Amino acid sequence: MNRLDRSRELALASTMHLHIDEKGTVGHYLEPPGSGLHHVFFLRVNGEVWVGRKRLQRDRHFRWHASSVLKPCMLLGPHLHSLWGDEGLSIGYRTASVEQKAQTFERALRLPDSEILFPFPIVDAAGREVVCPADFWQCSESLAEQLNNDEQHLREQCAGLLQAITETGALIYDPACSTGEFIAHLARALPDCLCLGSDRSASMIEHARQVHGSTSVEFRLLDASDAFDAGIHCDVLILRFLNAEVLTRREARTAFESLIRCVKPGGTLLVFGHTPVLIPVVWLAAAHNLQLESTVAARPGQMELFQFYRLKVATA
């Protein structure tokens, strides 16, 4: 996020009420052209679609930061229209109370058809999807700290789930392991499992081996697209890189369809990430005969939601 974008998002985080127009039972929000469009999201719950706008929020040190975690206050209301014009995206919605928004989040966690969707990618001035350049992934202490902090809630959610469903000796594979913190966290939480992390960035693998060399994780320098041909067959596949700013939508779908071949019959796939998931998971699950177990999650005791897809490969 550049300085201009961050300034706009900081202003919006504390002045959202000035940007919406609510008259009676119908409200209106205008998202102007520019980088903010990718923060608009839709929440499908029990056949009803709500619209919202993600905003910066405070971390535990009271600093503003971007997060995959959504809060009820980010919801606008049940969606009525989305119309694109020269002024930007015009969003109409039915107004809702604070209590109704919280109840919608609670229902989303309980009901199996719930889903969070971010339909608009981050694009540049020419309308192309924005992807971080290769040199962005050259590991440094500051980048490692940022990436690790951004995914703390995802590590905890993933470890808790796998502790409940994973058998002794299962192989857990993270094909874009980055700093290695995520797969090392799983190795500590599930000591009876085997953990493998790979990445195409040599500097990331070097960092992972140096920092997490005392864990049981095996780290390999390997492009995720080569995993199946390299003979990797896992019980759990962690897909946390099919996300905005990491790949384009087309690249993300190609990577998904390549990597699902690595999962053994009856195995589990988990799809999530700090930035929005790019692929249409529900549709791809149906297309590849994958059982969709869940789509959203929240930390225990927290009124929140984030994308967290759990899929299972058929046994036959």
Rank of each mutant, 00 (worst) to 15 (best):
C158T: 15
V130G: 10
L143T: 09
C139V: 09
L186Q: 03
E115G: 04
A144I: 05
Q152W: 07
Q146F: 09
G180Y: 05
E167I: 03
E156V: 14
V130E: 00
E167C: 14
H185I: 07
P119S: 06
S178N: 12
A184W: 01
F136T: 10
L111D: 08
L162E: 12
A189H: 04
Y173K: 00
D135F: 13
T168D: 14
A125K: 14
Q138I: 09
A187M: 09
P121F: 05
D124L: 04
L109S: 01
L109D: 08
D113K: 10
I116H: 12
I183D: 02
Q146C: 00
E151D: 00
S114H: 07
A187H: 14
Y173S: 00
E181I: 04
E181K: 14
C193E: 06
Q157L: 15
Q163V: 02
A187C: 14
A125N: 14
F118A: 12
L111A: 07
Q138R: 04
R155H: 12
G127K: 03
Q138K: 12
Q146W: 10
A108E: 15
C193L: 04
E145C: 13
C177K: 02
I172H: 01
A176R: 00
Q152H: 11
D113Q: 14
S178F: 01
E129L: 11
A189E: 07
H185V: 04
A184L: 01
W137D: 08
P133V: 05
D113S: 10
S140T: 15
A176N: 00
L143W: 05
G169M: 05
F118T: 06
D150V: 06
C139T: 13
Q138Y: 10
F182S: 10
A125S: 12
L171E: 05
S142A: 15
E141H: 07
A176P: 08
E145L: 08
D192Y: 05
A176L: 01
T179N: 14
L147M: 14
A164M: 04
V130T: 12
P112C: 12
R128P: 00
E129S: 07
E115Q: 11
I172Y: 02
G160W: 00
P119F: 13
A176M: 08
E145T: 15
A187Y: 13
D135K: 08
C193V: 11
A184N: 03
S178L: 13
A134M: 07
V123G: 02
F182A: 06
R188K: 11
A170V: 03
P175M: 03
S140E: 07
G160T: 01
A184P: 02
F120M: 13
Q138E: 14
W137V: 12
P112K: 07
R128S: 05
R128A: 12
C139E: 09
L109T: 05
A159D: 06
P175F: 07
A159H: 10
H185Y: 15
D113E: 13
L196R: 06
I165P: 04
E181P: 00
H185T: 13
D135H: 15
S114C: 02
I165T: 15
A125V: 11
D135Y: 14
P121H: 03
E145G: 11
I183M: 05
A189N: 04
A134Q: 11
A144E: 06
E167V: 10
F120G: 09
Q146K: 06
P175K: 01
N148Q: 01
Q152E: 15
L147D: 00
C193Y: 01
L171D: 01
F182V: 08
P121K: 04
L161G: 10
E141C: 03
H185S: 14
